[in-house]
Design a protein around this nucleic acid. Sequence first.
DNA 1: CAGAATATTCGGCAAATGCCGAATTTGGAG
DNA 2: CTCCAAATTCGGCATTTGCCGAATATTCTG
Lengths: 182, 182
Amino acid sequence: MGENGDDPDEVATAREEVIEAMATTAEMYGTKRSLGRLYGILYFADGPLSLDGLAERSDYAKSTVSSAMSTLERYYLVKRRSLPDEGKRAFFEAERDWWEVTRRWLETEGRREVMTMNRALDTAQRRLESSDSPEAAHDLARVSQLQEYYDQIEQFVDLLSGLSSEEMMALAETMDSAGSER
Amino acid sequence: MGENGDDPDEVATAREEVIEAMATTAEMYGTKRSLGRLYGILYFADGPLSLDGLAERSDYAKSTVSSAMSTLERYYLVKRRSLPDEGKRAFFEAERDWWEVTRRWLETEGRREVMTMNRALDTAQRRLESSDSPEAAHDLARVSQLQEYYDQIEQFVDLLSGLSSEEMMALAETMDSAGSER
DNA sequence: CAGAATATTCGGCAAATGCCGAATTTGGAG
DNA sequence: CTCCAAATTCGGCATTTGCCGAATATTCTG
């Protein structure tokens, strides 16, 4: 084991592989690759990084990094901190507990999506109920089916967003055994 | 109840509200609004629609509808069918069971995402293990944490993608009661 | 308060996206 | 095999996006 032959920087390329995978994942989620890369850099950093630090390590402009940090913060993927004796300079740290990220996301964005759809469904329902055209009944049934689905989703969201990440992991175990006993 | 006062077309506007909500949802998922709208049109249709039918009702060009149907199919949101005595003409129908959509999505795209990341993590792990630089150990720990998370996700995916939509709904109930007994 | 250091906002440009309509391909009927 | 109708692909245009760097705003320090 160990330093065998020419080794440009195995550690750096290993990081790069994972970071690139994160960028790709970001892309799959429909967001910018830069968010994935910047998160990845923070994920491997051994301490909080400043905007300049991030800009330097990522080759993105500082302004790009700044706005990236804002959105990563919005999704609970990074935390902004200030360090003692560092004045106004802001530092950023990756949230490495992805269950916690998930939980917080459900609690806010997830719930918001559900509410958006529920509102549309409810007003549509009222509108249809106050109409006696023949198509109304047909559409009402369709709307009801959506409401049913969203009620179930809401239950999921309610439950999951109330669990700690430890409890989520435990739940994963539970579900796993439940799956095998079929 | 019923036809009260001026009623331009309550049913149409009710549909439009829900369809727009679907377009918005599509946007939130990072995809094109047109996919949401076209799915919505199919969702309320009382029977399969052809490309021309969809183009007409949506005001999108036929070519746009065609490619939209391809991607909606890829995500299991619409099914392509041919109708008797309609020759080559293709018809499209919305999949209204969203649990089934979810299941199929997990089974393919979801699993693919996990695999992509797992591959990157594994090669990174190997690379780091064959290096004795001081940072290697640090990075290995970080990689391990990701592997742990993705293993758990994989369990989730395995379980859920093996359930019928009825079983998923039942599971939602189970989890709901589990949540309240804390 | 003045000045310096940091963060954010904004205008603009290059690249990517979404959509259209024409051109091409595919598939079925005679 | 030939036509014809239908579907898909492709080139191009308008819009949007992602990013940069300059300009502006903010906040700490003396």
